[in-house]
Design a protein around this nucleic acid. Structure first.
Lengths: 269, 269
DNA sequence: CGCCATCTTGAGGTCTATCAATTTCAGTGG
DNA sequence: CCACTGAAATTGATAGACCTCAAGATGGCG
């Protein structure tokens, strides 16, 4: 980490259950992957220069809208979703603070999915063209964005595995463990503001079956999801139960810092 | 297109049913998205300098192997897949000629999935480090790679929609139409060298159910999949039936060529 | 001709969806 | 403080989609 950049990080405050940096949510995410120069930090700061609040349910863009801007998420939860002709929904991505939302849309003239706030959120819009600027001004940031997208992609492939091949209970367990891992919390109890119908739409299940299956997981002493919170009752049991391996959430640290790290792909949390 | 680059394209030959460029498979793909300079073409040519043939079934890398190199696919079909503890498989991506395989792995020290040849293939390996070089030497190529990844990502999200919310018949129809669109063939009959168990593993179905459902689609006069070929019997009917919209396969043309194109997101093929 | 992989077909069972009724609970106003 | 309200969650009953197991058909290939 660059010494001159330290001041960016020293105002972190306990915010709910997550350590949120008052200056830059994005940078603290990125900086875990590569060491950022002051110039690079300057470029990234432009990504969250314009904070705006929206209430739960706000549609930041519709499916099929022209792709004009992206948003960084600095507070709250959001998701991308599609509506099918028959009225079914499919949730594609769940966004947590520190993420840039909508990078996937960059390659298209019109959005491939809707973007919706799941809680009250704070987002910072920035124009599409700024990303092009960023690519031109810093090859390392281009790499960084690319790496972040590989992580997004791995979350999508892991979802395909869940929906394609895991039974409902394992799907739910895996989903919750992914969220926990992404939140970076070590606590066995954390906020989880997703309603059951939304979880169902993320995992290809009906809300009724989500309810039943969560009851089952509770009776089995694995986890308890209710009232906007998750309580992990048996961490090891859960990991074992759904075969969770957090490797797919861990892009390279200090890239491209040379050698491959030793095999860290354990089942540990 | 740059005049000096024309010679790269004038040796295209009819190869089976697809137009394959004898000089560079990759470049002809990329060049549809942005105009490439001679320098950029030179950089890209390094990606297919070292062609090698492999037989059907060859494992190019195992799940969990160190990420040391990527492969461009210049002939044949391949796929990425995961094996689950219970022995189930999930096919994640199907690769066709002209694609760089494994970019998704760049962000990780070890591969997140296996890479397997589905037919006899010709692939060109190149070292991981070369991508970093490429990012440093050309911001436009970095952008281009990023755009290609947004397309990969959209194929993954579309698969999530299929597996999560579409019944088996629509899943199969959508999958076949995606392949047809990606092959770029206008013919209603084309090669399709995927066995039914593999299709099932891509779509979260059992091979038995794939067989039954394909029979159904044949009886309904929509399409006929057999003996390594697809015959589309009723193109409009198929598109209507599964709600196929090829927009997610069409990244920006001549990016960043300025204005957004008019709404091309029709249901046309 | 026989062998093997692949595909097909049948029967029965499991998982999940759907529909509908009930409960819970936070918010609201009397 | 308590009834009223509406969204969300739970529960029960039934139906349907898909899976598994197993037997038979098909077709390429030595």
């Amino acid at each position: 980490m660059v010494p001159g950049a330290v001041w960016h990080y020293d105002h972190a405050v306990e915010y709910g259950e997550r350590l949120v940096n008052t200056h830059s949510c994005i940078i603290s995410q990125f900086d875990r992957i590569i060491d950022l120069s002051p110039d690079e930090i300057g470029l990234l700061e432009a990504l969250e220069r314009d904070p705006r609040s929206h209430e739960e349910g706000k549609v930041l863009w519709e499916h099929g809208a022209p792709v004009r801007e992206f948003h960084t998420l600095t507070r709250g939860w959001a998701c991308s979703m599609c509506l099918l002709p028959g009225g079914e929904r499919q949730v594609l991505e769940v966004f947590l603070p520190g993420q840039i939302m909508g990078l996937r849309e960059l390659g298209f003239p019109r959005t491939q999915s809707a973007l919706v706030a799941l809680t009250e959120v704070e987002v910072c819009p920035f124009p599409r063209q700024y990303l092009v600027t960023l690519f031109q001004q810093s090859a390392r940031l281009a790499e960084l964005l690319f790496l972040l997208q590989t992580r997004e992609q791995s979350m999508l492939t892991e979802r395909i595995i869940s929906v394609g091949r895991r039974p409902a209970a394992e799907r739910l367990a895996h989903f919750v463990l992914e969220i926990k891992s992404r939140l970076g919390t070590t606590s066995l109890s954390f906020e989880f503001p997703l309603r059951q119908d939304l979880v169902g739409d993320a995992l290809g299940l009906s809300s009724v079956h989500v309810s039943r299956t969560l009851s089952q997981l509770r009776e089995d002493g694995l986890m308890c999801v209710s009232a906007g919170r998750v309580e992990i009752l048996d961490m090891d049991g859960l990991i074992e139960f759904c075969g969770f391996n957090r490797a797919y959430l861990e892009p390279l640290i200090n890239w491209p810092g040379g050698d491959l790290p030793p095999d860290r792909q354990g089942m540990t949390m």
